[in-house]
């Protein structure tokens, strides 16, 4: 464990807590893409298949359970909670995310570390995580104004993967055979997708103005 990875995990945890706060405090999920949340639930379920088979550390197990439970509860809230589901921007959240799932599954079958069930789902989860934010970014551009909590949610979500890239660079130089190219390349793509959001987020923060994404 290194400081970049720990900071990345904490930033990721903060992003989930900010989203939970927004939904429970405002009883609203306006501006949040249900499709992105469903993709993230799938990412965690596919990646943490080893939750009960490989014990790495208490920290690792606890965090996996937290991420799985939080992502499933957000999806449940947005689908089933009577108050929250009413504020879901159903007509704006129209990204066809099933194509992302199919594409990543195909990609995982073609490019993986080992042709085993767990490794293919692990690669699938990394590819899917890289593109999972797309429905959310499309929804933000369509809905124009971004409320603070949603903006912070997306910002922390992007920052966590950027910190992981520092972690991979650090591990590359400190561990003799660190070759997780699938993680690194997926992580780079993932962070790049946040590029324009980060730019507009920084501009709005600098001008102390509301975050406006160009339509």
């Amino acid at each position: 464990m290194n400081i970049f990875r720990f900071a990345g995990d904490m930033t990721h945890l903060i992003s989930v807590l900010v989203l939970l706060l927004k939904i429970y405090a405002t009883k609203s999920c306006s501006g949040i893409s249900l499709k992105t949340q469903e993709l993230y639930a799938l990412v965690f379920l596919a990646r943490y298949l080893d939750l009960f088979t490989d014990f790495i550390s208490v920290y690792n197990t606890v965090m996996k359970i937290v991420f799985i439970m939080s992502s499933l509860s957000i999806v449940w809230c947005m689908r089933m909670h009577p108050m929250v589901r009413r504020s879901y921007d159903k007509e704006l959240d129209t990204f066809r995310h099933y194509f992302l799932i199919a594409g990543c599954l195909l990609g995982a079958l073609l490019v993986h570390e080992k042709f085993t069930f767990q490794e293919i789902f692990w690669a699938f989860s990394l590819y899917l995580e890289a593109v999972a934010i797309l429905p959310q970014l499309v929804l933000l551009q369509r809905s124009g104004n971004v409320d603070n909590l949603t903006g912070q949610y997306v910002f922390f979500l992007g920052a966590y993967r950027a910190l992981y890239i520092l972690n991979w660079i650090y591990r590359y130089f400190t561990e003799k055979h660190f070759g997780r190219w699938i993680s690194c390349i997926s992580g780079l793509v993932q962070t790049a997708l946040y590029g324009d959001f980060f730019y507009y987020y920084f501009i709005s923060w600098k001008n102390n103005a509301k975050l406006q994404l160009p339509a």
Partner: peptide
């Protein structure tokens, strides 16, 4: 070593 096999990152 086994560390490389196991995915120790979240």
């Amino acid at each position: 070593d086994s560390d490389d096999e196991q995915h120790d990152e979240l």
